[in-house]
């Protein structure tokens, strides 16, 4: 969508006065809704609604051989799909560039072993390991995709049930794994340290978080920071535009602060959450 000059100015002024178009302050987030276990045949899933942004994440697990140089580690792979439901521009291969960008940022955010310990996914050293496929489906785009995606991914991974291994039979090269049939009997992943992405935009002289679609258009430059346990896991600048060094540090600070708060809130909610399959999209 395109904004007129007047609209852009309006937004700029609002940000300067710490009173954005929808009434938030610069560090405020729009209301979020989180649901888990929507996709029942995936091992874990979550759906996050951040005002207009709607993201659905599903986690699937497969058995795979670990990389030869990392025999003790499992694998994790991200895949993002922008559905045409969001905008007609995403039809066919239209949304691919955005999808690839998202997937890459997520991969780099999860790369460090401090964020996500892949060793937990190992079954048999050098022979078998779990591979997690995290599939993100963007259903509606209302701005601030990165945050929504990262929160949804974290929630989905939290709820993921990894099948518990009962026996491993080794017969030469042939490895056979037996797991318990009952899905309740499972392992869970530790998601404390999973990174949370925050998008910080510079509009005018100030930085804001959680930009809406219109605000994204006005931004001079945007930075996405991934914060995990007080450390930065990845920093990427997105969009067009450039930032000054000091501005950059400002953004980072802001991002850092916001991310930690966000993380705390999310973890608190995740502990309480009950999977409620009967609602989903029907509410």
């Amino acid at each position: 969508m395109s904004l007129s000059q007047a609209e852009k100015t309006f937004i700029l002024h609002g940000v300067a006065e710490n009173f954005r178009v929808d009434g938030r302050d610069r560090e405020g987030y729009r209301p979020m809704e989180l649901e888990t276990d929507i996709v029942q045949h995936a091992f874990g899933s979550a759906r996050l609604r951040l005002a207009n942004t709607d993201v659905l994440v599903a986690v699937k697990i497969e058995v795979d051989t670990p990389l030869p140089e990392k025999p003790f580690e499992g694998k994790i792979e991200f895949f993002v799909d922008c559905s045409a439901n969001a905008t007609p521009d995403f039809e066919g291969r239209g949304g691919e560039s955005l999808a690839v960008e998202l997937a890459n940022i997520l991969s780099s955010a999860y790369e460090s072993p401090l964020t996500f310990d892949l060793r937990k996914l190992c079954i048999l050293k050098g022979k078998k390991c779990w591979k997690l496929y995290v599939d993100v489906l963007i259903l509606e785009c209302g701005g601030n995709l990165f945050d929504a995606v990262s929160l949804a991914v974290k929630a989905a991974l939290h709820i993921t049930q990894v099948p518990k291994i009962k026996a491993v039979n080794i017969d030469g090269d042939n490895v056979e794994i037996e797991v318990s049939d009952n899905i309740i009997d499972c392992d869970r992943l530790n998601v404390e340290n999973l990174p949370v992405l925050v998008t910080v935009c510079k509009i005018g002289n100030h930085c804001i978080v959680d930009p809406s679609l219109t605000e994204e258009q006005c931004a001079v430059g945007s930075v996405v920071v991934a914060v995990s346990k007080e450390c930065f896991s990845t920093i990427t600048s997105i969009g067009t535009g450039s930032l000054h060094e000091e501005t950059l540090f400002e953004c980072l600070d802001l991002g850092h602060k916001v991310a930690i708060k966000l993380n705390q809130t999310l973890m608190a909610i995740l502990v309480q959450i009950q999977p409620n399959q009967d609602v989903g999209f029907l509410k």
């Binding site: 029942q40 045949h41 995936a42 091992f43 697990i61 497969e62 058995v63 099948p163 056979e176 794994i177 797991v179 318990s180 049939d181 009952n182 899905i183 399959q277």
Partner: peptide, 18 residues
């Protein structure tokens, strides 16, 4: 209601069946 269980498929992967 739904019933959930895990079954192994031919390749050796585990699928959750609902």
């Amino acid at each position: 209601t739904t019933k959930c269980f895990i079954k192994k498929n031919k390749i050796g992967n585990f699928l959750k069946h609902v």
